[in-house]
């Protein structure tokens, strides 16, 4: 097993466990306020591992619960974009002709879109909450995947097993999803893994602009945002959530890159 993949998967499993068992891992109630002068903006200590924020809440516990937000946004957004990308890419590559031209034009439009601007706009107007964030990120990020799947289908649809399925009278949709798609999944996994990291970054950027998950629900992005006003005397408020985002995104990217090298013999021959 590639070392990068091992590292990435280990971190992701730990984070997933933290997210699932958040109530056991957290040392405090993430919403419990302590507005006393001593309780607010405490530095890291054995009592509060990552210190406390401007309202005296335990940052470590808030980050533990924030893991749920980041991971679920990442996975669900990518799931949505995968469903769209696989369907449109498959249909486009399999049928060709005007269907293909139409879908490819839409993909080109999505490619050139100032995506973050669109996401910002939609979230502002629709209202900032976690469901909107997931759906909008998913709806705006399928173009790359669609192209990838289409390219795979273009070569696979000429293969003998597809012809034999056709001769047997298998329906087009069944050929696309049961016969060809399973063979086209390898590059999709690479791209999807990398996209999870991207989606987490977009979520945190939205939270940073106040467009993500709304307080008091903790997310890494909004802990960071609250902390930015205290950056000159409470570094832990911005430092820890930032590092958490970095490590999570890094893990997903390492898994993705590791998988890519495994799949592309040109890149891994001398290993």
């Amino acid at each position: 097993m590639n070392r990068r993949i091992t590292f990435g998967i280990t971190i992701i499993i730990i984070l997933a466990l933290v997210a699932i068992f958040a109530s056991f891992v957290a040392t405090h109630d993430p919403l419990e306020l302590d507005l006393s002068l001593e309780g607010r903006l405490q530095g890291p200590s054995p009592e509060h591992f990552f210190g406390t924020d401007n309202l005296g809440r335990d940052v470590f516990s808030r980050m533990v619960y924030g893991t749920r937000i980041s991971l679920s946004v990442g996975f669900i957004a990518v799931f949505i974009s995968m469903v769209i990308g696989l369907f449109l890419g498959g249909v486009s590559g399999y049928f060709g002709g005007w269907v293909d031209s139409l879908i490819m034009r839409i993909v080109e439009v999505m490619y050139c879109f100032p995506t973050f601007f669109l996401i910002m706009m939609v979230i502002t107007f629709l209202g900032a909450n976690i469901v909107n964030v997931m759906v909008v990120i998913g709806l705006t990020s399928w173009a790359g995947l669609c192209r990838l799947v289409r390219a795979e289908f273009l070569t696979l649809r000429e293969r003998d097993f597809v012809h034999s399925a056709k001769v047997q009278g298998v329906s087009d949709m069944r050929i696309i999803f049961r016969h060809i798609l399973p063979n086209a999944m390898a590059p999709v996994y690479v791209s999807a893994t990398l996209s999870v990291g991207g989606a987490i970054l977009v979520e945190s950027a939205l939270s940073f602009l106040g467009l993500g998950v709304q307080v008091p629900t903790p997310s890494w992005g909004n802990i960071l945002t609250a902390g930015k006003n205290y950056i000159d005397y409470a570094w832990w408020l911005t430092f820890f959530p930032g590092v958490a985002i970095l490590i999570t995104v890094l893990s997903f990217n390492l898994i993705g890159e590791g998988l890519r090298e495994k799949l592309d013999p040109k890149l891994s021959e001398s290993r």
Partner: peptide
Amino acid sequence: VFIGYAAPAFWLALVLIFLFGF
């Protein structure tokens, strides 16, 4: 480069502002 890619841009900006600015 992987760390640079994974670091959220706004966070990096805050860290640099804190270190080199303040």
